[in-house]
């Protein structure tokens, strides 16, 4: 017995730019959601067959298994350099890095700053969950003051262990950066805004306008020791005040693109 599906309208399906596999991400982690937003943007822009993904070291180390595009895996923090090598030699391709906060904001600060300074035509999806998830929840540069992690067991004391790093603000002052925003995925409205920003970021690259970076506040229920719902609430209550959402750099040439993605939403 089969159901005739022809009378139904498809309203939700796996994007072509995602592979049909189970992911290794923890239950409730928003990496999977962010992957989907990236894949939807790639599909909608019709760039899947010319996109190359650069995975980081961290929770997203297997990102290349989930994106249905050519992909590679960079040494810890070096994704922007590796992506530079790919993009400079294949300028017709769309190259993006997908990096966590330990990868991009600690060991890879030099690489991301200089990629931005050079105005590399790359898209950077920067996922900030305030800790090193893969290694089991250690303090990251983005860990909040007072936050307990396995390597700040008494809470992060800024006088001893530094202050949370605000990446979007930092990158936005570099002249080569064309589009730098911070978004969050803690509720539907913000998920939609994140999607529009990711799409804009890819369009910035397609237009050759310079570096585009979307920082996404993301949950880590496992290492935060919270339920998925609590974790989403914690993003809003604890992270957003330290990492304010917003557009930190929208170059003049990018403004029309943001209008297009906003209208499409």
């Amino acid at each position: 017995m089969s159901t005739d599906l022809s009378q139904y309208e498809v309203v939700y399906r796996r994007p072509e730019a995602l592979t049909e596999v189970y992911t290794h991400y923890c239950p409730g982690c928003t990496h999977g959601l962010i992957h989907r937003l990236v894949a939807e943007a790639i599909d909608e822009l019709g760039i899947r067959e010319r996109t190359i993904a650069v995975a980081p070291v961290g929770c997203a180390v297997f990102a290349y298994n989930y994106f249905n595009v050519d992909g590679c895996e960079a040494p810890h923090g070096r994704a922007p350099a590796m992506a530079t090598g790919l993009k400079r030699t294949q300028p017709d391709k769309i190259v993006f890095t997908y990096q966590g906060d330990g990868d991009l904001a600690a060991i890879g600060t030099n690489e991301i700053i200089h990629a931005a300074l050079r105005g590399e035509n790359l898209t950077v999806i920067f996922v900030n969950n305030a800790n090193y998830g893969m290694t089991g929840g250690q303090m990251a540069p983005t860990t909040l003051a007072g936050m307990v992690t396995t390597s700040s067991p008494y809470g992060r004391d800024p006088h001893l262990a530094g202050y949370p790093m605000r990446v979007a603000e930092l990158i936005s002052v570099l002249p080569g950066a064309a589009y730098v925003v911070r978004r969050s995925v803690h509720d539907v409205a913000n998920v939609n805004k994140t999607k529009a920003a990711i799409k804009t970021a890819f369009m910035v690259q397609m237009e050759g306008l310079g570096l585009s970076l979307v920082e996404v506040l993301s949950s880590c229920p496992t290492n935060w020791h919270m339920t998925p719902v609590e974790a989403l609430r914690w993003i809003e209550d604890a992270m957003v005040p330290v990492f304010p959402l917003g557009d930190y750099k929208v170059a003049e040439a990018v403004v029309p693109l943001t209008k297009r993605t906003r209208a499409a939403r």
Partner: peptide
């Protein structure tokens, strides 16, 4: 393509990226 990197770490990883594209580098 010529590019002066920000460090030898940058240079070798740019090389890595280019090499992944099958480019003589």
């Amino acid at each position: 393509v010529f590019l002066q990197a920000e460090s030898e770490l940058g240079a070798i990883n740019m090389l890595y990226g280019a090499a992944c594209g099958g480019v003589r580098c």
